[in-house]
Simulated scan of single mutants.
Amino acid sequence: MKIRLVRQGVFTTVEDITETLVPPDEGFYWIDADVDDLVVLQPLFGIHDLAVEDCLTEEEQRPKLEVYESHYFLVINSIRFDDEEIFLRALNVFLGRHYLITVTRQKINELRSIKPILWEQEVNSADRLMYHLVDIVVDNYFSVGDRIEARIEQLEEDILMHTKKSHLTEIIGLRSEILWLKKVLGPQRDVIATLNKRDLRLIDHQLQKYFIDIHENAVKIYETFETYRDLMGNLREAYQSSVANRANEIMRVFTALTTIFMPLTFLTGVYGMNFDYIPGMHDQYGSVVLLCIMIGLGFGMFYIFRKKDWL
């Protein structure tokens, strides 16, 4: 657990957690904790049992905002895209008048990248820290969306150039993750809208207006992933069409080869019969002439098929 006193974006480390119970003369306290630290934090700050239960659960949390008497409890999901797999990590935020507590089960990159923003913006209140934290979490969805879009384009190119069975597995897997992520984006969009529209006394009224921009970005992200879902459906159709076209191409080649060998098989069948009198049977060069006819017939049919673009 890390305890910091934040004044105009400048951090000062605090060793004794009991100091955070009294509002500072200037600034606010930021407590960055793990779920195990809730044993200490709950009695000190009067955190509700249901909020603690939500933090401790290992299941993925639905984004939400709960208002208690002395603090707010906000759950949003940070996103990561590693090794072609999407991960969501719950960021639990407790907002008080003079403090902000962030509780996470795994490490979240946004908590590290927020520090330069606090310095640059000279953040001096807990609600502004929460605003910038929600903003950077939502912005990261755009970067993940760009990577997913690039992967979809690469898949489309690979399918058109050379279709593989592994492409279908990748399409199904990526589409499932997009659908799963889309179910989370809807509630998260609604929670951000609540931060803007609801009367929240712990958030400055002027600051609440800025949540409109974050909400607009959340709506764009939701619509973007809706588009990705449609693209994955189109990609699956393209895969199936490519497989069907490839099968048709193979069948066309086999049919053409069979057609070419049909007259050759006929000639060999005729001259393989046990009759005494077959034209050219006893001729000295009969076999050579027959072979030349067969080769010429085969190449002639091949030339005709190529000219008609059947091969």
Results as ranks from 00 to 15, higher is better:
Asp135Glu: 12
Met130Gln: 02
Leu129Phe: 02
Asn92Arg: 03
Asn92Cys: 11
Asn92His: 10
Ile101Met: 10
Tyr141Ile: 09
Val103Gln: 10
Pro116Val: 04
Arg97Pro: 04
Arg112Asn: 14
Lys115Glu: 13
Phe142Arg: 14
Lys115Phe: 12
Gly96His: 05
Leu74Phe: 08
Asn109Tyr: 13
Leu88Gln: 12
Met130Lys: 03
Leu129Glu: 00
Tyr141Asp: 02
Val137His: 10
Ala90Tyr: 01
Phe81Glu: 13
Arg105Ala: 11
Arg80Asn: 14
Asp127Ile: 00
Ile108His: 02
Asn124Thr: 11
Glu110Lys: 11
Tyr72Trp: 04
Val137Arg: 07
Tyr131Ile: 00
Val103Thr: 11
Ser113Met: 06
Arg105Asp: 12
Tyr72Gln: 04
Phe94His: 06
Met130Ile: 00
Gly96Glu: 04
Val103Met: 04
Thr104Asp: 03
Ile108Arg: 05
Arg80Leu: 13
Tyr141Thr: 05
Leu129Gly: 00
Asp127Ser: 02
Arg97Val: 09
Gln121Tyr: 10
Trp119Gln: 15
Glu122Cys: 07
Leu111Asn: 08
Ser113Leu: 12
Ile86Cys: 09
Phe142Cys: 09
Glu120His: 13
Gln106Tyr: 14
Val93Ala: 01
Ile101Trp: 07
Tyr141Ala: 06
Arg97Asn: 14
Leu118Ile: 09
Val144Thr: 12
Ile79Gln: 07
Pro116Gly: 08
Thr104Arg: 15
Ile86Gln: 09
Asp82Glu: 15
Ile136Lys: 03
Glu85Cys: 08
Glu85Leu: 13
His98Thr: 06
Leu133Lys: 00
Thr102Gly: 01
Phe87Gly: 11
Asp82Ile: 15
Leu74Pro: 01
Val75Ile: 15
Ile79Lys: 08
Ala126Lys: 00
Ser113His: 07
Asn140Trp: 09
Glu122Trp: 07
Glu84His: 15
Arg89Val: 13
Phe94Asn: 03
Leu111Ser: 10
Trp119Asp: 11
Val144Lys: 05
Asp135Thr: 04
Leu88Ile: 14
Arg128Cys: 01
Asp135Arg: 01
Phe142Trp: 14
Ile114Asp: 02
Asp135Tyr: 00
Gln121Val: 10
Asp127Thr: 00
Ile108Trp: 08
Leu133Met: 10
Ser78Trp: 11
Asp135Gln: 05
Gln121Gly: 03
Thr102Ala: 02
Ile101Gly: 01
Phe142Leu: 15
Val123Glu: 03
Glu110Ile: 08
Val134Ile: 12
Thr102Ile: 02
Arg105Thr: 13
Arg105His: 14
Thr104Ser: 13
Ala126Met: 01
Arg89Phe: 13
Asn92Val: 04
Asp127Met: 00
Asp139Ala: 10
Val93Ser: 01
Pro116Ala: 09
Asp139Phe: 05
Leu111Gly: 05
Ile86Arg: 07
Leu129Ala: 08
Asn124Ser: 14
Ser78His: 15
Lys115Gly: 06
Gln106His: 14
Leu129Ile: 03
Leu74Gly: 01
Phe87Lys: 15
Lys107Gly: 12
Ala126Gln: 01
Ser78Phe: 07
Val123Pro: 00
Ile108Ala: 04
Ile117Ala: 06
Tyr131Trp: 01
Ile117Lys: 05
Lys115Cys: 06
Ile76Arg: 07
Ile101Ala: 02
Asp83Gln: 15
Val134Arg: 07
